[in-house]
């Protein structure tokens, strides 16, 4: 990349952080403020004591989970994609696989300007499509409800995530089987021996990912930085 383009990208990146931060702060204010606005309409105020004790009881777990997600996914998504993904949510079940798939389709590498652009395009498109689908769905909620909630279709919608990860597994395992086998076997064994962990699968991504990164590092060293 020549100097002119490098300067252009750096300027774009700086502004992305500025816009991302502004959008995040506005969203935070809106989300924390809206319960009070709704409270004004309903003639009730949030019980702050109950909210605080509730946060201590259930929120701390999610606090840790959110930090882990931020640490893991920010480098994957880059600046623009990262801000948008944390604003719009549904990371594990949608945004992350979507951005990784987009990156894979056009063959860009993490940490490059191309990845920053592609990741932002992917997350922004995904967010807009989700917003659109939900808006149409909510508008058609009454006529659609019997179809979407029909017992016949229930297994399909109960298995969106297995369908997603099954497809992604073929795509990624075939290229990196040596990295995938051990974490897959270990995770399966762990969930078999300690079934209570199944409810905390999102937390188990950390050890599984750490093991996979360790194996990728060994491979990287072995091949002199040419693979993985």
């Amino acid at each position: 990349m020549n100097e002119e383009k490098q300067a252009l990208f750096e300027q774009y990146n700086r502004r992305t952080h500025t816009f991302g931060r502004i959008a995040s702060v506005i969203t935070l204010v809106l989300l924390l403020g809206v319960p009070f606005v709704i409270g004004g309409y309903l003639g009730a105020a949030p019980d702050l004591g109950a909210a605080a004790s509730g946060f201590l009881a259930i929120g701390l777990v999610w606090f840790v989970s959110c930090i882990a997600e931020w640490l893991i996914y920010t480098p994957m998504l880059g600046a623009g994609g990262g801000y948008l993904a944390f604003i719009t949510g549904n990371l594990i079940n949608m945004k992350i696989p979507c951005a990784v798939n987009a990156r894979d389709i056009v063959g860009v590498k993490a940490g490059t300007p191309e990845n920053e652009i592609i990741s932002t395009l992917s997350i922004a498109t995904s967010s807009l499509v989700t917003i659109l689908v939900l808006a149409i769905g909510v508008a058609l909620l009454i006529p659609l409800q019997p179809l979407l909630q029909s017992p016949a279709l229930a297994p399909a919608f109960d298995n969106v995530v297995p369908a997603l990860f099954g497809a992604m597994a073929y795509k990624y395992f075939r290229k990196s089987l040596d990295i995938a086998v051990l974490p897959f076997l270990l995770m399966s064994l762990l969930f078999i021996l300690v079934p209570s962990l199944i409810g905390s699968t999102s937390f188990m991504i950390l050890p599984s990912g750490a093991l996979a990164i360790g194996l990728a590092w060994l491979k990287y060293k072995k091949t002199g930085g040419a693979a993985a």
Partner: peptide, 11 residues
């Protein structure tokens, strides 16, 4: 990402 997929398939 492979680790993430492994965790879900394992579950």
């Amino acid at each position: 990402f492979i680790g993430l997929i492994c965790a879900y398939l394992g579950s």
